[in-house]
Amino acid sequence: MKLIDKDALSMELMNEVLNAYAKADFRFAHALNVFQGLIDKAPTVEERKHGHWVRHNNIIACSECIWDMYWEERNTELNYCPNCGAIMDGDENV
């Protein structure tokens, strides 16, 4: 997946719409407006952090937000941090 800057893309499209109207290319301008509507409706996606569990005695902590919990075997099977949502696919230190 490639994240884009939705606002920057919208500004570029708006410039192209204005250029199309200036050239009296109304069909192209309409098509660009349709694309703008699709962009406006697109969901916002957040980039996910990647981390790993760090173990110290009976505590494990997320390497990204330092949220910690008591170490239990089933806790190390979590593939994400319940606090910050980081994907736990980094170094295995548990």
Score class of each variant (00 low, 15 high):
M88S: 06
R27N: 09
S10K: 07
V94Q: 02
W53Y: 05
I60F: 05
K41N: 06
L38A: 02
H56C: 01
M69W: 02
N33H: 10
L38F: 06
K49R: 13
A29Y: 04
M88P: 06
Y70D: 14
D68A: 12
L18F: 09
E72I: 00
G85Q: 03
L9A: 13
G90N: 11
I87C: 05
C65R: 13
S10G: 09
A42M: 09
M69R: 07
P82C: 02
L9R: 11
F28Q: 14
T44Q: 09
G90I: 00
Q36C: 07
M88K: 07
R27T: 10
Q36P: 00
S10V: 03
C65Q: 14
L13T: 11
T44E: 14
G51L: 01
H30Q: 12
M11E: 14
T44S: 03
K49Y: 10
D25M: 03
H30W: 07
N93R: 02
R48D: 09
T76L: 04
D89C: 14
C84Q: 05
V45F: 01
C65P: 13
Y70W: 08
E72N: 10
C62I: 04
E12M: 11
N33Y: 01
D5K: 14
R55C: 02
A31W: 11
A24F: 08
D40K: 15
E12D: 15
N93V: 05
D68S: 15
S63W: 01
P43Q: 01
S10L: 06
A42P: 02
Q36D: 04
W53T: 14
E73C: 00
N57C: 03
G37M: 00
G37E: 11
E12L: 14
I4H: 04
F35T: 13
E77I: 01
N57S: 07
H52S: 06
M11I: 15
A29H: 09
L13C: 08
M88N: 07
D25G: 04
F26S: 06
P43M: 06
Y80L: 03
N79C: 04
D68N: 13
D5H: 01
A42Q: 04
A22V: 02
M88I: 11
I66A: 15
I87R: 07
C65S: 02
M69C: 13
N19E: 15
M88Q: 11
I60N: 14
I60G: 13
D5E: 09
R74H: 12
Q36W: 01
G90D: 09
R55K: 15
L18A: 12
K6Y: 00
L9I: 15
D5Y: 00
E72V: 05
